[in-house]
């Protein structure tokens, strides 16, 4: 019997022959580590890039979005648990889609990018990598939507083929990760720094959960850490929690809480702070950090008005706005 150790994420699962790692989908077959969902997505959709959410990355573009079953975190509040907390063999529906098929269909549907999303694409890493290489060959961009629970070496390698990423920072609190996600905080922070160092466009999401991660001191520390380590121009999305999966005992995030965390992050010096999951909220839009001109007006995932210049500046004061435009 030959065990194998998966070195992709900080779990370092040692997997016996015939067994699977914690993510359910990376298995030991005859002493070899096999990613069983390679070429086998279970969710395939075309979404606006704003849904990822990426607000400073080709706004208004359409994204061919794929995910396979499995995840290397087990968040009690997971919104996509029917996909993420199952192995491939448990899915009712699986598509046959080799990297070439994904790229061909993305092109045929006039998509601008391919997103690896919904579950955590870390666990279908090889599929992401191969598809991304082929996508670049055909002029498509690659978007990686992740919780960032990955080791340094594979993250740096992936950054060579990824153009934009949204990393979900679930809380600036290691205890939260341990209690609610069966993970830890440090690898996530490291992954964000690596994305920044490697030149991948980065936006950060924080789901605000009542009583669990919404205290102002923690939010302040998180915002300061982002400013110091990722830069004040890093977009931060505060997202509204709604009860899901094993966390149905808590109410949706009050709108006032989102206003408070938004103010806290702005006071900490972050220039682009957004509120998500509240349809029509004014903080869905992008404003000039210099003169407060509305640069991109969003309603839900739709771009209603786009006022940035072609080189990504405020048309009134010429302030440069960070992003990939």
């Amino acid at each position: 019997m030959r065990d194998v150790t998966c070195e992709l994420c900080p779990r370092y699962c040692t997997i016996p022959e015939g067994g699977a790692g914690d993510c359910r989908v990376r298995v030991n077959i005859d002493g070899k580590l096999v990613a069983t969902t390679y070429g086998r997505p279970s969710s395939v959709h075309i979404d606006p890039v704003e849904k990822k959410p990426l607000y400073h990355f080709h706004p208004g573009s359409e994204v061919f979005s794929i995910a396979t079953a499995g995840c290397n975190l087990h968040c009690r509040n997971c919104q996509n648990w029917q996909l993420s907390q199952r192995g491939g063999e448990e899915m009712e529906r699986i598509y046959r889609a080799e990297p070439k098929d994904v790229v061909d269909v993305a092109l045929a549907e006039n998509c601008h990018s391919i997103a690896y999303t919904y579950s955590d694409p870390i666990i279908f890493y090889e599929y992401v990598y191969d598809t991304s290489v082929l996508a670049h060959d055909h002029g498509l961009k690659n978007i990686f939507v992740t919780a960032g629970y990955i080791n340094e070496k594979p993250m740096r390698r992936l950054c060579r083929v990824i153009d934009g990423t949204n990393i979900d920072l679930k809380a600036f609190d290691d205890g939260f990760y341990r209690r609610n996600c069966s993970g830890s905080l440090k690898p996530v922070l490291d992954a964000m720094v690596i994305a920044r160092e490697e030149g991948v466009w980065l936006e950060v999401t924080n789901l605000v959960i009542p009583t669990l991660n919404d205290d102002m001191a923690t939010v302040r520390r998180m915002a300061h850490w982002i400013r110091e380590n990722l830069g004040e121009e890093t977009p931060l999305h505060f997202s509204r929690f709604t009860p899901h999966y094993q966390m149905r005992n808590l109410p949706p995030t009050p709108v006032e809480s989102l206003h408070r965390v938004w103010n806290e992050a702005r006071d900490a010096g972050l220039k682009y702070v957004y509120v998500g999951n509240i349809y029509g909220h004014k903080s869905e839009s992008t404003y000039c950090p210099n003169d407060n001109t509305r640069l991109i007006h969003r309603v839900g995932f739709s771009v209603e008005e786009y006022n940035l210049t072609r080189d990504g500046r405020c048309p009134v004061c010429r302030q440069s706005v960070s992003g990939v435009w």
Binding site: H45, K52, A67, N80, R93, I94, Y95, E109, A115
Partner: peptide, 25 residues
Amino acid sequence: SIPTGRQRELSLHEADFYKPHDLAG
């Protein structure tokens, strides 16, 4: 019977890419 035993393998062309969904991300 959602979890097991009814798996369907489909061609990518059989997917309804524009079907509304409630997946996050």
